[in-house]
Amino acid sequence: MAGQGTTTDAAPADTGRHAYLKNGEARRPRIGPGLRTFLIFAVLVGLGALIFPSSYFYRVGTLVWINTLAVTGIVVLLGYVGLVSLGHAGFFAIGAYATAILPSYGIPSPLAMLAGVGMAGGLALIVGRPILKLSGYYLAIATLGLGMLIWMVLSKEAWLTGGPDGMVVSGMNARNLFKLVGLKLKSAEAWYWVAGFAAATGAAIAVNLARSPSGRALRAIHDSDVAARSLGVDVARAKSRAFVISAIYAAVAGALLALANGYITPETGGFMHSVEMVTMAVLGGATSVFGALVGALILTALPQVLTVFADYEHMVLGGIMVVTMIAMRRGLVPFIADLWNRRKS
């Protein structure tokens, strides 16, 4: 490539600055990777809106973006640092239930959302330190226990949460946000835009995080705790930070879902939901925010397509998972990206 030569020919100071970059990357126009991700997501959100014929499509689209947001948190934790959490539905549910419960105590929805996100982040910070000393299966089991505890509180404390039957979420409708600027949208469309914007922002932040010094520290931990520590990375602190960040992603997604649905049940915090989030990340490719998007898209939209062969739905979904795991171990997006690379070179 031409770019390579220019870089090596440049002044010594410049070489120093770019030495660690891969071929060509230094020559790209100066749009930051975070902004670029945001723009790509924005285009996809807009593209969806262009082709969607009815509220039903907007509804499925909204769920795809909300799931993408939650799974982006899993990407930070699992893809960047290599930590498995089977309790993230718990944080998701904390965001959702705070948004549902607090308005009845006179706290407006946006503040309730913030409070829920704060609670989830706070809880992740408190339990993160002791839990994150564990690794591998032990960590998965500990987070599973945490998720179970949250689920139990939600389904047993009926006076607060409505118990197993769930509760109504009253409050903000996204439609009113758009009314402020003079746009009249159906509520399904309004939630689609809000969820799409949230997912795009979340993805941009996650991409920027990966490029930042603390993101590099996280990826160093992914390869080796010991090596990272010997390079001066505070491993415990970095892990805890990643755990809190991913909990915040889950809680924001939970709050959005609660508001968009208008009704929540303890199942949002159930074990199966935790597994679903991790599955989406692994299927799409846990190392990339686009993996989060593809995983969320497939597992949210495919069941809708498969209703035609409802009896075979689980077989098809299971088959896709098995084939992906055998043939494309790193997930769909990294696999297709690799193919693309190989063809080019």
Binding site: T37, I40, I51, V207, F290, L293, Q304, V305
Partner: peptide
């Protein structure tokens, strides 16, 4: 990164069907 985005786009198109 752009490649990943294209990959995401391809997967998305594969899902649009059904009437």
């Amino acid at each position: 990164m752009t490649r990943q985005a294209v990959a995401a786009g391809i997967s998305a198109l594969a899902l649009l069907a059904g009437a």
